[in-house]
Nucleic acid binder design. Structure first.
Lengths: 336, 336
DNA sequence: GATTTTAATGTAAGCGCTTACACTTTAATT
DNA sequence: AATTAAAGTGTAAGCGCTTACATTAAAATC
């Protein structure tokens, strides 16, 4: 049977209020009493019940992070940033994984309504304006990470600019026929990236060719998988005439794309997006996203809002950086 | 201001008990009433407060997963298994990340005591016998994933056997001088893997050479990083005489190792451990762990125990499978 | 139509805590 | 030693729910 504050109070010969004070680092408890209570609590294996605490105090000291894909380094880096930012505060972190199977919006809105935490971080979750408005009505402090909206605080990334830079780089290297290894076209980041790609083309007076936007067949995780990258690259390799470079919408996909190139023994310069740890190790040229910073800043922003709910909504946009490695180079000799 | 059950009851002209019943799918509520309450709740943005619910009902319908590293595919796969298993049950999942910075045991034991959930999954957390005994005292239903103990239910993996198989395979290919690209030697999985390696050597009458166990300098995440793999491989490449094959203790490390080999333009056959998604894409021979199954089974086991607390402790050990790809082959010609 | 049965709803206690306020003890001041 | 201030502790209300039990309304039975 789980012990309650009453058991401890009784065993220690004090009132429950005193026990409560001991566990809430209130100063006005005599040192003797504190030690006695702590000792007995330890012996009896007691710890305050979070639900009861939360209910009585109306505080939870808790931030809840909602995220769909917890697989990749993007997520890990964001999480690192969040944790580091939280370490300086009195907040704890819980995570709820938004599963791929059910409706993401419903999962999120139900979770938000349950009063788990005082603040919420929505990571890589992209909702329509209408959906966000619905969330807004709950009047819950939350900050979007890797998404942008006028309705909420957000820390996002300029996908359009990143794609523009990558494409521009390829053009500057003399490539003209540049394919896009894309993912689910309805996803917001993809839309922005393709926008940047198009802008780069048009500024360089290269006409846009719809056939060069290629997607894999497997649409799991909106197509942000190695498999999907592989499939798309196979299609690209079969285009004729072949493109002379590829802008790939994610490092994960690029891993698949590389495999396809090796299998077909054709190398096409490729530049991708994210700068996951692996990118460095497989020599992938890519667009860096400051994931750690984004997590860190978003958490700060959220905590600011908790302290001061009337703050104006603020949107922070982080900027891309090109990281050039070997994959974007043109090879003379083809390696296996 | 957040709405309570009283607000809804008042607005709907019913008692709070009725509102509660509506939200707990009790059947004995008239259809009219149910609809009315639901409509008003929706309008007013009401949802039951989890803390109050948990406190009053003494149920949480919640499983809490504790995990240290959420970065890799190992974790994702386990999570997938957990979620799929949970989908058939009425339980929800929360995750608490056990940070690298602070004492893991303390974080875990504090979290366990807070009555968050009815059951807990401890993933890839390795504690000493003594520590586990301390946890045992709390008398909380929990299941270890990727760890073994007589004190708790567990779903683990036979690391020793996996290492044995990998090493044996290399030996069968004629390699005799086999280095180990190791990680933190105090970590339990590493100990078991090295044990398997040694057993394979001795069964084949190859003498063990301590100098062939090589570790990177960076010990973040117990050395399970690309960087650490890279560092260790550089050391291996400088050994003389050079080993003729490498048993690598994780795919992540192998990614770093491959980079080192490319930079030094020396190829040594390598076989690693985990079979992360990436392994397939970079042609890594490796030891497969059935991560998804492990997550799935562990969750089942935990739920079983929740239904029947007096069950005998059960330990399930999953077995390795060798996945041979190109990395373990000996190359005649060296590629860039 | 009166009586029994069943369905629907309400009342109130209690889940394990926090915390305002009251009270008692101890220390400081005169 | 009497008075005042400060420190330590206790009492009790209440956080937002669930649920056993009581009550009332509706349906079924005779």
């Amino acid at each position: 049977m789980a012990k309650t504050i009453y058991d401890i109070a009784k065993a220690a010969g004090v009132s429950i209020a005193t026990v409560s004070r001991v566990f809430n680092q209130a100063e006005n408890v005599k040192e003797d009493t504190r030690e006695k209570v702590l000792k007995i609590a330890e012996e009896m294996g007691y710890h305050p019940h979070v639900y009861a605490q939360g209910l009585a105090s109306k505080k939870k000291n808790r931030i809840l992070m909602l995220a769909p894909v917890m697989s990749n380094y993007f997520f890990t880096e964001v999480l690192r940033g969040i944790q580091d930012s939280l370490a300086e505060e009195q907040f704890e972190l819980n995570i709820v994984n938004i599963g791929q199977k059910k409706n993401a919006f419903k999962q999120v809105s139900e979770t938000l309504k349950k009063h788990w935490a005082e603040g919420y971080l929505l990571v890589s979750l992209h909702f329509s304006e209408k959906e966000l408005e619905a969330l807004k009505r709950y009047n819950i402090p939350l900050c979007l990470v890797d998404d942008f909206s006028n309705l909420f605080d957000s820390v996002s990334f300029n996908n359009e600019e990143g794609a523009y830079m990558a494409t521009n780089y390829l053009i500057s290297k003399g490539f003209k026929r540049i394919a896009v290894l894309s993912a689910d076209a309805s996803s917001i980041p993809i839309r922005d990236r393709i926008k940047g790609y198009k802008r780069a083309l048009s500024e360089n007076e290269i006409s846009f060719d719809e056939n060069l936007i290629v997607t894999g067949d497997n649409m799991e995780r909106d197509g942000f998988t190695e498999l999907s990258g592989y499939q798309a690259m196979v299609k690209i390799l079969k285009l004729s005439p072949k493109p002379d470079a590829v802008f790939c919408t994610s490092d994960t996909k690029a891993v698949g794309a590389k495999k396809a190139m090796e299998e077909y023994n054709i190398h096409i310069p490729i530049i991708s997006f994210d700068n996951l740890t692996i990118a460095e190790y497989i020599g992938l040229s890519t667009v860096n996203q400051p994931m750690y910073d984004m997590g860190f800043r978003a958490t700060n922003k959220l905590i600011q809002r908790l302290h001061n709910p009337d703050l104006r909504i603020s949107n922070e946009v982080h900027h891309p950086e090109l990281v050039i490695r070997s994959s974007s180079e043109k090879l003379n000799e083809v390696t296996s």
